[in-house]
């Protein structure tokens, strides 16, 4: 089932164009990789997908509806789970508090939020002690797991992850990729953004994002 569609997306920071005529389609139950060199505009694209920025041209459709017409806060907090490159966790809060706050913002109903948050954290490989630790005192890999648990907390259809393996060691990388794989198997649409060919190889489909030169003309088409 097609859940997310990008139609002719264009975006520029001021006069500097970053994205031009991007046409991607994403389906549930699949794992995608958007690959590109550093500075190609991967993070920018992810910002557009998560509603943090609006495209200058083209449209993003979520389940056939134009995201621009949806409440961006609701979209961000309910329909799409984003794992930012720098995680963007509240460092003074504990892991479980971060997850619970995310549920609160999404308006998740139910009494056992703490228990559910603990289960989610356990699911991404954090024990109880780590779950109750302030994020500041967790390692990069552990923070990555908290960010994933947080993205899953309100059970969105789409999971976006920006450089999910960026600064992790090989073993941890593999564990994290396994988590994403299992999410795709559960029927979610998993979109990973990465410069790593290894990550791309582990995905079902990949889109290559070309870095635009200072001018509007794209330089080389087949660079990977």
């Amino acid at each position: 089932m097609e859940i997310l569609t990008l139609q002719n997306i264009c975006f520029s920071y001021g006069k500097v164009p970053v994205l031009k005529d991007v046409n991607y389609r994403f389906e549930t139950g699949k794992m995608y990789c958007i690959i590109g060199r550093s500075g190609a505009g991967k993070t920018t694209l992810l910002s557009l997908l998560s509603g943090l920025a609006k495209p200058d041209g083209g449209s993003i459709l979520y389940d056939g509806k134009d995201v621009a017409k949806l409440d961006k806060y609701a979209f961000r907090s309910k329909y799409i789970g984003v794992i930012f490159q720098s995680f963007n966790l509240l460092t003074k809060f504990t892991a479980v508090e971060n997850v619970m706050l995310s549920m609160d913002i999404a308006g998740v109903k139910g009494k056992n939020k703490r228990q559910r948050a603990m289960e989610l954290l356990a699911g991404v490989g954090l024990d109880e002690d780590e779950a109750n630790r302030r994020v500041l005192k967790l390692s990069g890999g552990q923070q990555q797991r908290v960010a994933i648990a947080r993205a899953l907390s309100y059970d969105p259809q789409i999971i976006l992850a920006d450089e999910p393996t960026g600064n992790l060691d090989g073993e941890t990388q593999k564990e994290i990729m396994d988590i994403f794989r299992s999410l795709a198997q559960q029927g979610k649409c998993v979109i990973l953004v990465s410069h790593s060919p290894e990550v791309a190889a582990a995905c079902d489909e990949k889109y290559e994002l070309q870095k635009l030169s200072g001018k509007k003309e794209p330089k080389e088409k087949a660079a990977s």
Binding site: Y73, A74, R76, S77, V82, F84, L89, I105, A106
Partner: peptide, 12 residues
């Protein structure tokens, strides 16, 4: 930063 995180999480 906190404000950024909260709004990115979808808090109005």
């Amino acid at each position: 930063y906190e404000i950024g995180v909260l709004t990115a999480m979808g808090m109005k």
